[in-house]
């Protein structure tokens, strides 16, 4: 898949934002006033900013409001509904917290739940796609949620918890890759089933329908070199987990260590998210014999 910056930013930032909101909703932070405002500001900035980024890849963003209609079948629609609900509830919760210094716990729990639901929906947008076997696995929502929890814990300064969650996330990410690497094969689609010609022999593309590119090729047939991907995976793991966990476990807790941990995690998150898209092979690539090159 084409790793579009808007989608990478959207999933990464909104995941972090909703993660932070979730922790805020659970009331783990014993702060108030300006400090509370700062946390809320960051949380909303990330989640809303992420959502905004996601509209950049829309062909007709002015119609975005129409996207709430199909919540009964569409994960994207559900995500929108959940996000709005989460933001509304958490908005009320945060307003009360900041301005009235009131912590309405029930509202907070509800908000947290909605944040969780939002990120779950986001994950399901990808996980539901049979066409992209790497995403089409149970580990995809697990991974999104782990990132959400770990990021939320980290940003809400729950550093010890964060260390544990980051470690889990790292393992989940590794598992996602491990299982993901096998998914295309397991899904059972190949150039033979795509064309129905598999029974006649080994099928390969001789001539593309067009000599240049098209929407399908640029959107779905991005390929990354295996070496390049391996390198990025290494960097990703070190940055999302190894460095932050090490810092949080072995370095004295301070704003500085926290900031470095956050930064490292963010870099890791963005790079693994880039890979999440870049490494994902869409079955439509079979018609262009792209799997042959990738394999």
């Amino acid at each position: 898949m084409h790793p579009a910056p808007s989608v990478i930013l959207f999933t990464s930032l909104s995941g972090l934002g909703f993660g932070l909101l979730l922790f805020l909703g659970l009331g783990v932070l014993d702060v108030s006033g300006w400090v509370a405002f700062a946390f809320c500001f960051v949380a909303f900035g990330l989640s809303v900013g992420g959502l905004m980024a996601s509209t950049f890849h829309l062909g007709n963003p002015q119609r975005a409001m129409k996207a709430f209609k199909q919540w009964r079948s569409s994960w994207l629609s559900r995500e929108g509904v959940a996000a709005v609900a989460a933001l509304t509830v958490m908005g009320a919760y945060c307003a009360a917290w900041i301005f009235l210094n009131m912590r309405i716990a029930a509202l907070g729990f509800l908000g947290a739940l909605l944040c969780l639901a939002t990120v779950f929906c986001t994950a399901m947008i990808y996980a539901q796609l049979k066409t992209i076997p790497r995403w089409n696995q149970a580990m995809t929502p697990v991974m999104f949620l782990s990132f959400m929890f770990a990021g939320g814990a980290l940003l809400s300064a729950q550093l010890s918890l964060a260390a544990v969650l980051l470690a889990i996330t790292t393992i989940v990410q590794l598992l996602h890759w491990m299982l993901g690497d096998r998914r295309f094969g397991e899904a059972g689609s190949d150039i033979g089933t795509a064309t129905g010609l598999g029974g006649l022999g080994k099928v390969r593309l001789l001539e593309s329908p067009h000599s240049g590119t098209n929407y399908l090729l640029s959107e779905f047939c991005h390929t990354v070199g295996r070496k390049h991907a391996q390198k990025l995976r290494g960097i990703g793991i070190v940055a999302i987990g190894v460095v932050p966990v090490a810092l949080l476990t072995f370095a004295p807790h301070s704003h500085a260590t926290a900031a470095i941990a956050v930064l490292s995690h963010l870099i890791g998150l963005l790079s693994t998210r880039w890979l999440f898209f870049a490494e994902a092979e869409h079955v439509v690539g079979l018609y262009y014999d792209k799997h042959r090159h990738a394999a």
Binding site: H57, G59, N60, R63, K66, A67, I125, L129, E219, F220
Partner: peptide, 10 residues
Amino acid sequence: CIGCGLCAWS
């Protein structure tokens, strides 16, 4: 249509 592309992905 908002042009989100998801249908094409699917």
